[in-house]
Design a protein around this nucleic acid. Structure first.
Lengths: 149, 149
DNA sequence: CCCTATTTAATTGTGTATAATTAAATAAAA
DNA sequence: TTTTATTTAATTATACACAATTAAATAGGG
């Protein structure tokens, strides 16, 4: 039983180190994203829109692992800020396409230097972070596949 | 500029792989924690209480990297479920101590097997996950120190 | 063609997160 | 001792997250 209790110690929880690190990263981004007027999840939406130009809500949800309960209100807030346009498909009225406004497109240049600024806070080498990212992407795939079943 | 745009691709974002993995892990825990009647953040609170018996809200916040705006309402919900007791310190009326009820203590035995069940979903070796945890703990420390300044 | 199943967003309700403010209590300085 | 600064929770307001449900539209089978 002692051995089992030991596995419940906070210090031994990989899940907690991921959970806490994720929130600390969001805090590092905060002052940088405040300059752009967006939150961290909104920044992720911009990343995929800068890459894809136009996306359905469903496709964005697949890329970001978020569902419509999260995306719909968030994208409406981004529409209010005139960062994105939401329009229903004519071919299939169930589908809503999201695209960038000029204002949304222009934020890309202001965001360019964010990755290196965040990198400088980590005290880690590029290689170490690259390795970490790859391990997490594999883990993410395993867990996501399991959660889909 | 192309090089800078490339760094904004979702696939190149370590931050996103941490963020998405964290949420997928929470989903893996969901059915296991439903049996105990708690959420994932509530489970983290139980982990530290099982280790420390009694804690102030401040101390719990330091351990979990959460502030009173998150903990106060969460601990009130846990009190409503009769998992914890909240009582103000007599020495310093600003301090609120949190301790476990019998019901809260007893959940420990039901939680014992959760870590190994989650482990089995990862498709990774113990060693690989241990290494991942250590890297993340170092990163967490760097980011937290930076966020405190 | 009609019925059923599926797909897709939106909505609703609950539970975190966090910044900013408030309020109470303690400690420290003048 | 009186004032000032600090500490600690609680409160408030905003923004995610996600499960579950709803509603509309499309697709597929008979």
């Amino acid at each position: 039983m002692e051995q089992l209790y030991k596995q419940l110690q906070l210090e031994n929880q990989l899940c907690f180190s991921i959970y806490a690190t994720s929130r600390e990263i969001t805090k590092v981004y905060k002052p940088l994203l405040d300059k752009l007027g967006v939150t961290y999840p909104q920044y992720l939406a911009l990343l995929v829109l800068w890459e894809h130009e136009t996306l359905s809500v469903k496709k964005m949800g697949e890329l970001l692992y978020l569902d419509s309960g999260t995306l719909t209100p968030m994208l409406k807030r981004m529409q209010d800020q005139e960062l994105v346009i939401r329009q229903r498909s004519h071919e299939d009225e169930r589908v809503v396409f999201i695209s960038l406004t000029e204002k949304g497109k222009n934020l890309r240049d202001k965001a360019c230097h964010i990755p290196e600024e965040v990198f400088s806070m980590t005290n880690k080498s590029q290689g170490e972070l690259e390795k970490l990212k790859e391990t997490l992407q594999e883990l993410l795939q395993s867990l996501h596949t399991y959660n889909q079943k």
